[in-house]
Amino acid sequence: MLYYIVRRTAYAMPIAFGVSLVVFSLVHLAPGDPLSAVMGEIDARLLAEMRAHFGYDKPLYLQYFIWLGNVIVGDFGVSLRTGMPVIGILLPAAANTMVLGVLASALGFTLGTVAGMVSGYNHGTWVDKLVSSAAISGVSMPHYWLAIILVIVFSVELGWLPAMGIGNVPTLFSWAALKHMILPTIALAAIPGAIVARTTRACVMEILNMEFVEALRARGLTERRILLHVTRNALPTVLAVMGLQFANLLGGSILVETVFSWPGTGYLLNLAIFDRDMPVLQGTILLLAMFFVLTNLVVDILQTVTDPRMSRA
């Protein structure tokens, strides 16, 4: 077990290295260097001086290692627009995204597993058909469109909930703050909820067809006890999907955050792209991607813990 964890962690290292390389290269896909895009037409001598100041005059590979070294110790550089350290903008934004991500996962995963279980158990009935059609709609749903519909219904027409922002509130744990989170949470929960529902349903159906369930029934176990066995067997697969969906949620929240002007990483990314503020762009993408790598690692390990057969493979 421990051996597996060490091996799996060691395997994540080259991936993380590769990810950092991709994130760094992304910036150099753009024509011109990051500075000229921001500064526009200025004095050539001044531009050269600034280039030297930001280190953009060095060869690329050297720039990469300097950047990587700084990032490892938490220095993401300074924003080309505001001159503020990137880390100072990035962390609060990441916290805001995380709040939505956790809420949306809690909502989506709970609804998804319950719905998936119910429809898997009642395969072919109208409940199953209802859940399956809701799930396929959720999977195909452009969540930014769902966000707009929610705003129209609950903010414009009913006037119950605020349409945008995080509100001017002292703490996140208040009704005023929560009101701002309800609509973005629902919009974000749709896709992961639907995916978890589909996975759980398929999983439960497959397990119910297995011989050991028949054996449990023959031994006279109550349906409730059998449910426990089914849950236990579905756990590794569903858990893996949940982990991936959670990380995807954080990385993919840009569209929903844009609709609600939610001050998270997605919104920051949006601003950075249109300001061509490369250090902010690099920092945000790197943080989100690293989180994705980390989640994958944790999920793989958890999966092995819940299903010991895996570590023998």
């Binding site: 080259p14 590769g18 991709v22 992304l26 753009a30 990380a247 762009l281 991607a289 994705f292």
Partner: peptide
């Protein structure tokens, strides 16, 4: 497959936004 793994380590929307955002 190892190079594929690296690109797999990005959430799909994030990677699309990152590439499109960098290219313009």
């Amino acid at each position: 497959m190892r190079v594929t793994d690296v690109f797999y380590a990005f959430p799909s929307i994030l990677l699309a936004v990152a590439i499109a955002g960098s290219l313009g």
